[in-house]
Design a protein around this nucleic acid. Structure first.
Ligand SMILES: [Mn+2]
Ligand SMILES: [Mn+2]
Ligand SMILES: [Zn+2]
Ligand SMILES: [Zn+2]
Lengths: 145, 145
DNA sequence: TATGCCTTTGATTTTCAATTTCAATTACGC
DNA sequence: GCGTAATTGAAATTGAAAATCAAAGGCATA
């Protein structure tokens, strides 16, 4: 799993003529061992604890590379912080976002996906991507105390 | 229509103990006579042409008030600019966004709305709001030349 | 292993939307 | 009209993200 992703990035890097650097290896290791939907700042701070030399800019740049390579996906929720999640080829899902505890629940609904395509077709619109985010309170945050 | 909205805002302002100011009247007039999905900067520039004294901060603040009053709705698309659209009580719709010409097509789909509620219920999640944005190319932008 | 090119890095600066600050102005109940 | 508290707007500040650029480092070649 993790090895496959590393391999995938190495292939992407090779194809693009990118150099192999210590920083990119470290950032990839941290990203792969991180929970879903990590913000750049969160990841940067985690890395900085054991690798103080690594800079903000490199983390930003490298996450964009991972996205280009297909390992990561950018998620823009309503808090002004870009987050990244692990991307699996061909996989797609949407998000329930708890505004109480910031938990994120993933879901996928084939019918919704199909209806979106029908709506687009009806308007002669060609879909490139979409985002469906449902904001509210998760079961835990709804519970009294 | 426009008068109803002005009345609605006046009632909101009265209930909240807000004062009636020339600036708020002007900004409301401009907002109500503007096409859908206007950005703050766009609206500010339009107003400035005939009312140079009105400041950025006031436009930002006032649009937030309109939102609170239920006349406007904040729309955050993927271009880093907050937009506002006219809100009608009880009405909801989602957006097809053309990345070619920035056109925005509105749509509503009862089945999608229902499915969202089912998904939320399945996770014990209480929905407060949601956003569904479909990005791609509109019919005109797809057409050759 | 050494050379040299050219990519990458990271401290710093810049950008840009949006918010905050605060002194001056203004609305409005009395 | 008076006094007070809300409002305004120029300017400063914020915060995320991108850009800058000199120094460091990867890598093809000899
Ligand atoms: Mn996800
Ligand atoms: Mn709309
Ligand atoms: Zn929660
Ligand atoms: Zn278009």
């Amino acid at each position: 799993m993790i090895l496959e992703k590393k391999k995938a990035f190495n292939e992407f890097a090779a194809a693009k003529g990118l150099r192999s650097t210590r920083q990119r290896d470290i950032i990839l290791d941290f990203f792969l061992s991180t929970h879903q939907h990590v913000s750049v700042e969160e990841l940067y701070l985690k890395i900085k604890a054991s690798h103080p030399g690594i800079g903000h800019a490199t983390v930003y740049r490298t996450l964009k590379l991972f996205t280009e390579a297909g390992l990561a996906r950018e998620i823009l929720l309503h808090d002004g912080q870009t987050r990244y999640e692990h991307a699996l080829a061909g996989e797609h899902h949407d998000h329930l976002v708890c505004t109480g505890c910031n938990a994120i629940i993933e879901f996928e609904d084939e019918t919704i996906e199909k209806l979106q395509k029908e709506i687009a077709a009806r308007h002669g619109f060609m879909i490139r991507r979409h985002k469906l985010e449902i904001y509210g309170l998760c079961a835990l945050c709804r519970a009294p105390r």
